[in-house]
Design a protein around this nucleic acid. Structure first.
Lengths: 224, 224
DNA sequence: ACCTGAACACCGTTCAAGT
DNA sequence: ACCTGAACACCGTTCAAGT
């Protein structure tokens, strides 16, 4: 039983940065960002905690890398179609990525060191608008308005915890019980007469607001 | 020098929950949310760390309280004027509060236990729209779209670190140096030909996007 | 009812040492 | 070049004890 350093117990394969980032994303997806620690991540990967620092300079760098990985999952705006279709597609793909990785929602737009995938994505969005004939200033307006809306909606949706329409109904009902209509009459009315009605789904609001912005932008662009 | 338990060294005055919340907000404003710890906060207030738990059930409760305090600083939508003016005013007041308390930006819309000031605020917004003749469903659209945009813009603005136009120019210049136009041609063009031009101020984008949404909403409302 | 220190189970990261 | 354990300076919170 002694001297077991044989071929079957050779040192584990060295990690890749990407491997490490994917493992961190997986951990955050499964257990939430608050339980992503350097110690738990190294345990997940089966190595010493400090070995992580050979691939990542610190935890902030780890997070930056994770976010850039998420950006790499997002569809670039398609070139061959109208800018409205391309922008709608990107917005949908963005929302899908944030649904897969809810922990990323507060982080994607607040980190200050964008990675290459992030920059490529933003470059493609701007390129799509410029190619569609947007003047530079309108491109800037479109970029600011769309991204603000997309990120903000995801943030709000997460906090409202509107998973399925059924969950929504349960939560709304709890709200109505907890806060009598006397104190917050309008909130109560909106909840009872609208949110609690059959067929209501908060997710539907996403495209409505998006169209509002896209339609507004269309009027700022010279027609082809 | 012994037995100093005299009138001048009596026990410190008991804390109030509000006092404690204001001190926490002040600490977060001055040093950033990442250096707000129960230990540092109690030190700031001159008491034992565990004394905080007599006024706050845990750190999450502390954060919830802080956010509700921030909401109490925001102007309610004014009733006497048009809904456009009221909504614009609220949006501006919201932005001002988030500028005063940048640490609150990611938190105001992602916490799941809204306090009374938060609920009062949302109730007033919904009430303003209903009073203006908005159908319930359009009220829901307006609420979702406006809040998404307002929070998202603040988040983006913070990450872009666009403090003053001068800072913007400095950052943009650093960006251009770091990333040659070859790799991100459209991003480079927007930066050089638009962002780096004199008079550019990202803050101006706020009202432009806001008007886009307000104008779009106006078309969904029966005219008076 | 309010306060508090000690202790516990965690963190991220520096350092010095291994291969 | 990559790996790693021990140690340091932090966390939030439980507990048991004080007034």
């Amino acid at each position: 039983m002694a001297e077991q350093q044989e071929s079957s117990t050779e040192a584990r394969a060295p990690w890749t940065r990407t491997q490490l980032l994917r493992a961190a994303i997986d951990l955050a997806d499964r257990r939430g960002i608050e339980s992503l620690s350097m110690r738990k991540l190294s345990q997940e990967l089966g190595g010493g905690t400090m070995s992580l620092y050979n691939h990542v300079s610190n935890k902030d760098d780890l997070l930056d890398g994770m976010i850039d990985e998420v950006f790499s999952e997002i569809e670039m705006p398609a070139h061959e179609r109208s800018w409205q279709v391309a922008m709608r597609g990107r917005a949908m793909s963005m929302r899908a990525a944030m649904t897969r990785h809810p922990w990323a929602i507060g982080l994607m737009e607040s980190r200050r060191t964008p990675g290459p995938a992030t920059l490529r994505h933003h470059d493609a969005v701007i390129g799509c608008l410029l190619d569609a004939g947007f003047p530079l200033s309108v491109t800037a307006h479109a970029f600011a308005a769309l991204d603000s809306y997309i990120y903000g909606f995801a943030l709000q949706e997460r906090s409202l915890a509107f998973g399925t329409p059924e969950e929504t109904a349960k939560l709304a009902q709890a709200f109505v019980v907890q806060f009598p209509a006397k104190e917050y009459p309008h909130l109560a009315r909106l909840t009872i007469e609208h949110v609690l009605q059959p067929g209501y789904d908060y997710a539907d609001e996403y495209e409505i607001g998006l169209n509002l912005i896209l339609d507004g932008l269309a009027k700022l662009v010279p027609q082809r």
